[in-house]
C-alpha cells in the first residue's frame, strides 16, 4: 500500500482510522494542509488527488492506495512560486494565512474544472460551457472559508489566474 505525495512514494499507515490529512501532517510532516474544522466544513485541508480537489480531513488514507496527491508543498518550482501563489501575494489574498494553502489548491483545481466546461450552481445554462464571471469564481470557491474575510483578494487572485490579468 503506497501513496504518492508531491511525486514521492510513501507507505500508507496500517491504522485504517487515520485520515489522509493526519497522515500527511503527523506522520510525514507535510504541515501545509491545515486542520481547520476536521469535519468537512472549512476547506483548509484541500489537496489534489490525481488532479481533482478533495478534503483530506474526510478522506481515510487507506482509501488512497496507488493515488497521487499534490499539496501546497508540491506546487512551486523550486524557489519559483506557482503562478497562483504569486497572484495571492500580488492581490493580498490572505491575512493570517491559515486557509491559504486550501484556497490555492482549490484555485488550481477550479481552473481545470472551468477549462473542461464543468457547470456550477450559478451557471445559467447547463448545456454549454459556463461563461467566466466573478459569480462563477465565488461559487466555485465557496467550499473554502476565510475567517479573516480576505475573500475579495482571494477572488481577485483566482480571477487573474483563470482569466488572465485583465479580469
Amino acid at each position: 500500500m503506497t501513496i504518492e505525495i508531491n511525486n514521492r512514494p510513501y507507505d500508507l499507515p496500517d491504522d485504517a482510522r487515520i485520515s489522509l490529512l493526519d497522515f500527511m501532517r503527523e506522520r510525514l510532516e507535510f504541515f501545509g494542509s491545515k486542520k481547520g474544522c476536521n469535519q468537512g466544513a472549512c476547506g483548509a485541508c484541500t489537496v489534489l488527488v490525481d488532479g481533482e480537489r478533495i478534503l483530506s480531513c474526510l478522506a481515510l488514507a487507506a482509501q488512497y492506495d496507488g493515488r497521487s496527491v499534490t499539496t501546497i508543498e508540491g506546487v512551486a518550482n523550486g524557489d519559483e512560486l506557482h503562478p497562483l501563489q504569486a497572484l495571492f501575494v500580488e492581490h493580498e489574498g490572505m491575512q493570517c494565512g491559515y486557509c491559504t494553502p486550501g484556497q490555492i489548491m482549490s484555485g488550481i483545481a477550479l481552473k481545470s474544472e472551468l477549462e473542461r466546461g464543468a457547470p456550477s450552481n450559478v451557471s445559467s445554462d447547463l448545456t454549454v460551457a459556463p461563461r467566466l464571471s466573478r459569480d462563477e469564481i465565488k461559487e466555485r470557491l465557496s467550499g473554502n472559508l476565510c475567517r479573516c474575510g480576505a475573500h475579495n483578494g482571494i477572488i481577485d487572485a483566482v480571477a487573474a489566474y483563470v482569466g488572465g490579468e485583465e479580469q
Binding site: T46, L58, S106, E113, G143
Partner: peptide, 23 residues
C-alpha cells in the same frame, strides 16, 4: 444528465462543495 435530467444536475451542484462532490 445535464441535457435530459437538468434538475438532477442542478440539485447536485447546489449541494456541498466541489471538494466534497468530487469525493
Amino acid at each position: 444528465v445535464r441535457a435530459q435530467y437538468p434538475a438532477l444536475s442542478r440539485a447536485i451542484l447546489a449541494g456541498a462543495s466541489a471538494q466534497i462532490r468530487n469525493m
